[in-house]
Design a protein around this nucleic acid. Sequence first.
DNA 1: TTGTTATTGCAACCTTGTTGCGATAAATTA
DNA 2: TAATTTATCGCAACAAGGTTGCAATAACAA
Lengths: 117, 117
Amino acid sequence: MLAVQEFFENSDYAVSVVDLVNHFKEEMNKATVYRILSRMESEGMIHSFNGMDGLTWYAACKHCSHDHHEDQHPHFQCKKCGRVECLEISLPIPKVKDHKIDSEIVLLVGECNNCQS
Amino acid sequence: MLAVQEFFENSDYAVSVVDLVNHFKEEMNKATVYRILSRMESEGMIHSFNGMDGLTWYAACKHCSHDHHEDQHPHFQCKKCGRVECLEISLPIPKVKDHKIDSEIVLLVGECNNCQS
DNA sequence: TTGTTATTGCAACCTTGTTGCGATAAATTA
DNA sequence: TAATTTATCGCAACAAGGTTGCAATAACAA
C-alpha cells in the first residue's frame, strides 16, 4: 500500500486504473491494486471519477478525510497527450427549471499548456 | 433496427446500453444491439455519453444529422430513480488559466420532479 | 509463543463491449 | 424470374475492466 500512496503524493495529475495496474504489475497483483485503491478512496486519500474513455481515474485528494470528501472539483483532460488534471476551482451549479440539482460532474476537454505548440 | 429506432422516438430520456440489451434480448442478439446503436449514432440519430456508473448511455438526438452532431448539452441524472435526461440548455464554457478548453462534459446530479415528494 | 486480524496472490469469475464467420434476408442486375 | 451482390444478423469466442473466494502469509497483540 505504501508504494501506491507514494505514487499519488505531490501529483496534481489523475491516473487511470489501467495505468496504475500496469505500473505496479511487477510489484503486486491486479486485485491488490484495486483493493488498495478502494481502501485509499474510502479513507479520503484519493478520489475517483470516470474519464471520457469510460475508465476509472484516480487522483490525490487535497483537503479530504474519510468523513469529509471534497471531490466536486472539475477535471481537465488534454485530448492530445491524454493527461487528466484536477482543477482547484469551483464552478457555479446551474439552475434548471423543474430540477433540484445537488452536484455536478464536469470534465473539461481541450489542450494543455505543454501540448500547445 | 426499426424496433430500436422506435424505442428512442419521442423520448427525452437516455438509456444505458445494459438496459437496451436487456430490453431487446428476446428480440435480437447483444451484438446486433451494439451494432445498431453505433450505426444510429454515426447517422446522427442518437448520441452517447458515459454515466456516473461508467456505462455508456444513449439518447435521441434532436437536431443532428450524420455530418452535424450536436451532443454537447448537459445531462441530468436523478439519484433516486436513476433516470437520465438530456437538458436542452447550453452552459457557458469556463475559462481556466493556462488551459485551452474546447468542450465540457457535464452531468448534473440531483432529484427529478417526479421523485420530489 | 500462541492466537487474532489484516493483507496479499492466485485463479476463477462477472460484466461490458468487440470481432470473425457462416447464414439469412434484402436489394440489384441481368 | 433467376442469379448475384450487398447488408444484416446470430452465434460463439474473445478482450479488457473489475470483483470475489480462498488459502497463504504478514503484522499485531496477548
